[in-house]
Nucleic acid binder design. Sequence first.
DNA 1: AAATAGTTGATAATTTATTCACAAACTAAC
DNA 2: GTTAGTTTGTGAATAAATTATCAACTATTT
Lengths: 207, 207
Amino acid sequence: MANKNVPKATLQRYPVYLKALRKLSASGVSRVMSKELSNVVNIEPTTIRRDFSFLGNLGKQGYGYDVKKLIEIFNQQLGMDFDEKLILVGAGNMGRALMKYNRWDYVVGEIKCAFDINPDRQGVRFGIPVYDLKDLETKIPNGVRIAILTASNDIQATVDRLIDCGIVGIVDFTHEHIQVPKGVAIKAVDVVSSIQELVFETNSIIE
Amino acid sequence: MANKNVPKATLQRYPVYLKALRKLSASGVSRVMSKELSNVVNIEPTTIRRDFSFLGNLGKQGYGYDVKKLIEIFNQQLGMDFDEKLILVGAGNMGRALMKYNRWDYVVGEIKCAFDINPDRQGVRFGIPVYDLKDLETKIPNGVRIAILTASNDIQATVDRLIDCGIVGIVDFTHEHIQVPKGVAIKAVDVVSSIQELVFETNSIIE
DNA sequence: AAATAGTTGATAATTTATTCACAAACTAAC
DNA sequence: GTTAGTTTGTGAATAAATTATCAACTATTT
């Protein structure tokens, strides 16, 4: 995979592009120019072109980009075709909701198995085996790099164990602060934090 | 409020600081130095000090920061004490989960009311009135700036109406691309996008 | 009370990210 | 074909964000 130091800021925009491209594709648009796309996503055309250029020469001069091809490339690059293996830690309400949507809208990967301390939640749910969390080290499948964390007890201790098992990316649904060593990435999915950012940002807009 | 052009990157870190500070406070730490905090959040001490300096002179040379005071300031600045009024659009599974947790862990504000097209979902749920979405314009309380969007139909049209009603910030739980004019901020809360970012980021780490 | 050790906050230097500007490459019309 | 009109992709310029440096200050020790 061509992946030569893509800026962090660019990484954050890729999912935005992908969503927008899908919307365009769904409404019958088969080719798009950076300027058109710019109107859709509120990002400068030149930024878009530079962002895209990290993934190869995707466009054609005088023509633009082929939407389908672009989506395909993004799918590949953003892991959709990788069939990224995921594990889920915590099989409570949120965990079960995620299992239910396992084969997501547009598949990122697949939840291979889940872990929970509560015996009532163990067994098979929505086709996914849920193991006892204490068996994490033995039951975790090979090659899993990303864990989705929806647990609510002993969070830091669990994270430490996950990292020992080779996890390098965590999607964090907890509302707590988690400490990880360098080399491990965390993405918080958190309403409260999102609202906080918005409150501050919109205050800035007003004043 | 002192709010002179806080960098976007800084805004994204504020919720991280707040969580970490709460954790510290809960474990009995009453004062902290930028270097200590750095170890906890994996952000350079000097970046931390700069980030904090936008909110005033919060620290003391040769001493550090008072954790409680810091939390208080953050609460104020990040809207917690503002009692920010929120509305919820969409009262399905996700919407109801949010209503249930309305008075969040650490209160951001309050969901004043919700809207949904489905009559079955209207009425009062968890103490929050749920109105028909078609009455949005008449039922939306004064002074609401932020909407939480968990609807799944006619998303773009609904967003347009929200903006007409004065909404300037949207917490977006949908998986679709939404188009908004400049001056309106969106924060996507989206597992799939989060995983996508992680997949790419962790690929970068490995290769 | 003076000296020392240690920390913030401001400024300067550096790094990272965005935007400009234009050559090269393509399409479409003739 | 050839030419005019577009649009990409990228080197260079600009802007933004991060990190380093240091003066000013605080607490503590002597």
